[in-house]
Amino acid sequence: MTSAHVWGAQVRDVLVASGVEPREARRLTDEFLAEAQTAGQDPAGLYGPAVSYASTIARTIRTTATRTSPLDPVRGRVVLRLSQVTKRYRRRLVLRGVDLTLRAGEVAAVVGANGSGKSTLLGICAGVVRATSGTVERTPRLGYAPQEHGVSPLLTAAEHFDLFGAVQGMSRRRSRSVGGQLSRQLGWAPRPGVIAGHLSGGTQQKLNVVLSQMNRPDLILLDEPYQGFDQDAYVDFWEQVFKWREAGAGVLVVTHLLHDVERVDHVLELPRAEES
């Protein structure tokens, strides 16, 4: 019987680490063990390896947790508009005449090879980089997750929540509560006392994405957020993007991988930068 308990303990741990409430995790695990007993089988034999079974269960809970609205989201007001945006670095013309109109409730994917100026475009949308020419109009309520260094390796996740929450005037407790809630939606329970530098690459990116969402923005800018994500996390991430869309935000994702082109509202392809 001890191997069953070991299996059960593993399942419970993975469920909790994926953001399931501990009491719920215990209840579910007990039920799985009981069912295995009924079937007269070893749990690992009936359900498969503990870790993969638990991740499947966690994902099932997450994806059915919110009711999906059957209606098309109403296309709202414009949250981002780029008109003939150009960016030149000395002799290199990185972006040429980019046009994009993104409304609340839409998802835009910016694709292109490395070096095609995707990150620069995102920087222009964020206000970090100034465009050489063209106009940029953008709502002030903004969330931004840059590709690198968006996270401080020496601070814990909770401390990040404190910082980003304080910008919005949230108290520490509220910041941590909001941060924790958003993390659970991505299937992750931040552990106290673990600094960001010690998190795996995929988990760091999850933190990155959560931080961009803390002020309930109208426009969310994400740069290649799933480098280091495994297949499950990739699927979760896109589920989250579409949930944000339903909640009424506009989302701009910069990527070089695009799985489901049909589900995205706009695809902007950037050609390789030219020498001029």
Partner: peptide, 13 residues
């Protein structure tokens, strides 16, 4: 079982 029980869980949820 790794396929069956998650489906049952989903139907319940």
């Amino acid at each position: 079982g790794g396929t069956l029980y998650p489906s049952l869980l989903r139907l319940e949820q």
